[in-house]
Amino acid sequence: MSHTEESLQNLLRDGTRATTDDVDQLVSGLGPHVAARALGPPPRKLSRMGWMAGGVLAIAAGALVVVWTTPPPEAVPLDAAWTAQDGLTVHTLAQGVEVSIDGSGTLGGTSRHPEVAWSRGSISVAVVPGAVDGLTVSTPEARVQITGTEFIVARDALGTHVTVARGSVDVTCGEASTQAVKAGAPPALCLPQTAGGLLGRAQALYDAQAAPTDITASLSAALEYQPSNALTVEILATRALTLQRTNDLDGAWAATMEALPLAKGFRQDDLNRLALSIATSREDCTGIATFLDTIPTEDALAVQARAVCATFEGPQ
């Protein structure tokens, strides 16, 4: 059956509509949560000191904004948002400053010092020496500043890549010290600066079948950000999958056991399954016995696990 755009929209609208039964069932499931929060503590109010501190901070921030955003007399303010709608496009930001864009970001600053906040995709910048006082391209992980050069900033799940075609640029990754990247040098890579970003990098590396050491390094870096329990579970589980893929079954088992106590109530089923799978690969009948009851008897993994122990224990 062939559709139109409108019929696809109708299909999604009608097929996903929440029925009264859906709502009844889900709200009823929330009952214990509602009861637990009913007549709980009153909302927190900001103390007098808090208001004063907030006021001082706001005034300080306002002053900084005034200082930082005041353009030099001859500069023209720049303000634009780019999205990845038309593929590659070329823009002249000021006399002697040309950018080729294939992705999304925003433009600010002035014509004397354009400032690009880049979110995703690739931006190539060519600046005639002396054309501007400076030009900055920032991503969540990196800050690239130039005076006269040609370079490309590309951002994806792996991080921000900076390649210089002519001249040199100063690249600052997060809080690290600034490094100069010259034309012809290998691209600089700024890794994501959040636990979630590093987990995303690890998962992208996993999908790309990258070296396990790179994946686990990204996951270890993610853990250093002291992520929430939920994110820690995802990180440890991804580490377990990675180690299992490389046949480091002891490491995979250890990561899974570390994740399990944190996963109570939301990821336990998945981790039980992972633990059973690793125990089966390790031919660990004690581990299998611990987790065998957590999945349905007829599940293929359960059948496989029982077969492993039957092989070792022989017919009963």
């Binding site: 929440a18 859906d22 709502v23 889900l26 709200v27 929330l30």
Partner: peptide, 18 residues
Amino acid sequence: LRRDRFALDALCRQWMPT
């Protein structure tokens, strides 16, 4: 905001479909 049981439930019921 008083965490009235019925008000919380009604709030959930109001927004659950959306």
